[in-house]
Amino acid sequence: MKTTQILIAGFGGQGILFAGKFLAYKGLQEELQVSWLPSYGPEMRGGTANCNVILSDTPVGSPIVTSPDVLIAMNLPSLQKYIDTVVPGGQVYVDSALIDVKVERTDVEVFYIPATQMAKDNDIATLANMIIVGHLLQNHPELDFDGAAETVEHLVPPKKAALIELNMKALNLGKEYKN
């Protein structure tokens, strides 16, 4: 039995929920059991957003992620709030363009990716989320990177078809980034 609990957290507007949706659809594509739970409360209205995604080869019990195997932190408050909840041996993805502290825990694997800066430099300013997701896919062979284009096509509405290519650009930047 393998279950991966993912927590993605940051500001509203950073594409937190979209990144989660991408991972959930990717899981669906790989015929895994999945759940996706957004924050919809006062937190979201006040500016922070987070999203719980569970990918499993057995039916998902509680959809609420309390001890993530993977944390994606896209701002400092999110990193501070959730870093201690990550399971030992878990992975932490940090947008190091926005977070200038290092993770003190030594029992987790940390990936520092200056995603927001990379996105700006490549004229895809709103797609820092997908750069991090691209790097995550690289570390998770069970989420086959080759099928990513299909997942993006599924998520982007036909009216915004131009975004497909940009999302793929972001995913590839993340994939190729050397930590």
Binding site: K21, V34, S35, W36, L37, P38, V60, P63, I64
Partner: peptide
């Protein structure tokens, strides 16, 4: 409840 209303599943 709010969780099952807001969550996505296959």
């Amino acid at each position: 409840d709010g969780t099952i209303g807001q969550m996505m599943e296959p």
